[in-house]
Simulated assay, not measured.
Amino acid sequence: MAQLKPNILLIYTGGTIGMIKDFETGALRNFNFNDLLKHIPELKLLDCEIDTTSFETPIDSSNMNPIYWADLVTIIEDAYDNFDGFVVLHGSDTMSYTASALSFMLENLSKPVVFTGSQLPIGDLRTDAKENLITSIQIAALREKGQPKISEVCLYFEYKLYRANRTTKINAEHFEAFASLNYPALAESGVHLSVNDEALYKPNRRKKLKVHKRMESEIMLVKMFPGICETTLEHIFSYDGLKGVVLETYGSGNLTNENWFIDLLKKLIKKGVPVINVTQCSGGGVNMGLYETSTQLKRIGVISGKDCTTEAALAKLMYLLGQQISTSSFKTIFETSLRGEMQ
């Protein structure tokens, strides 16, 4: 009996990839995604079935937020049993944030969820949209021994497939817009599609998909810089509704060890507000205690983000706060890799 073709659901949230240029006015506008094949007839050549759906009102990715994340995982949850893989078309500016969030919201995922987009609209003569979309669908349709080859949330852009929660956008101008500096690419597209089997996430396929939709957004990201002001931070940290803080620190997790700053952190942690330490460097990770300026952080209970990206650390914090993890176990759970987001 012939094996059925993989069935892929294409989900459009918004962004440049779903726009075409009006050649009379030069303005970009969204096109009807049901007419996708008219713009990319090459999709007919793919050895899979493709269905499409879209946010009722597509959005610019700058407006992305946890409410839309919940909408997106609901689409995947409702369609999960009827499709072999999912491709999410998303604006590139916040793609790493959304893709990282979904990696935590979709627990026990055993099918591919591939995020992609483009730097130029689909109707542009030099667009990168066609290659990104075609290869993302091919990746989502990959099978091995009757099972999906890829079983995690990932991001494909400019010939490389990355683990989503390891990515960050590094360039607003070049087609190679994303990087994963602390984890190797999952696959590379050239003459052949080469998959790095050792780097793939290995799910427990016996566990059923569990979808989490509550993400706590009353959190703050604070980037350290020389001259950061005591009164400003004191004002921010005194907000009663503050549920968590991510500190973007220098190098391997260092920041000022002036008494006023350490005291502010102590007060936060004493109130049960988790404080996460991630490096503002593009690559590498946090190693608290390596230098004297980070020794006190470790002592007062600051949580190490290890080699997490800022995007993944924020998403993980929102997710764990949404799960209402107890204060006593929060640090241990955060410092444990849940979806391959840290070493």
Rank of each mutant, 00 (worst) to 15 (best):
F31V: 07
D51W: 05
F104E: 02
N30A: 10
G26W: 12
I59Y: 07
F33Y: 12
V87R: 01
G123L: 04
I20D: 07
M19E: 14
L89R: 00
T98I: 00
F55Y: 11
A27F: 11
N63T: 08
M95G: 11
D81L: 14
S100F: 02
Q138D: 13
E42N: 05
S103I: 01
F33C: 12
E42Y: 01
I137H: 02
L37W: 04
S100G: 07
D51Y: 11
T74A: 15
H39F: 03
D22I: 12
V87P: 00
F33T: 12
L133V: 01
P121Q: 13
E42S: 07
T53H: 02
S96D: 12
I76P: 08
K21G: 11
S62Y: 08
A27V: 14
I67H: 03
E42W: 02
D128L: 06
T135K: 05
T52A: 13
Y80I: 11
E107I: 13
F86M: 10
E77Y: 11
Y97H: 12
I75S: 02
E24I: 12
S61Y: 05
E24Q: 12
K111S: 11
V114G: 05
I17F: 06
L45G: 14
D93N: 13
K111C: 14
D71P: 07
G26F: 12
T116V: 08
G123S: 10
D22S: 08
V73Q: 01
F31W: 00
V73W: 00
Q119E: 13
T52F: 11
N32M: 08
N30Y: 04
S103Q: 05
V88M: 09
D128P: 10
E56A: 14
R29K: 15
T57F: 09
D84V: 10
L46F: 03
M64R: 01
G91W: 02
I67G: 00
T127V: 09
F31D: 07
E42P: 03
E49C: 10
R126C: 12
A79Y: 01
D78A: 14
D128H: 11
T57R: 14
E42M: 06
K130W: 04
Y97M: 06
L102V: 01
T98F: 01
L89G: 06
S118R: 07
F23E: 15
E107C: 12
E49N: 15
N108M: 13
G26M: 13
T127W: 05
Y80M: 10
N63I: 04
V73N: 06
T52G: 12
K38Q: 13
V73P: 04
E42I: 07
N30P: 09
K44P: 02
E24N: 15
Q138T: 14
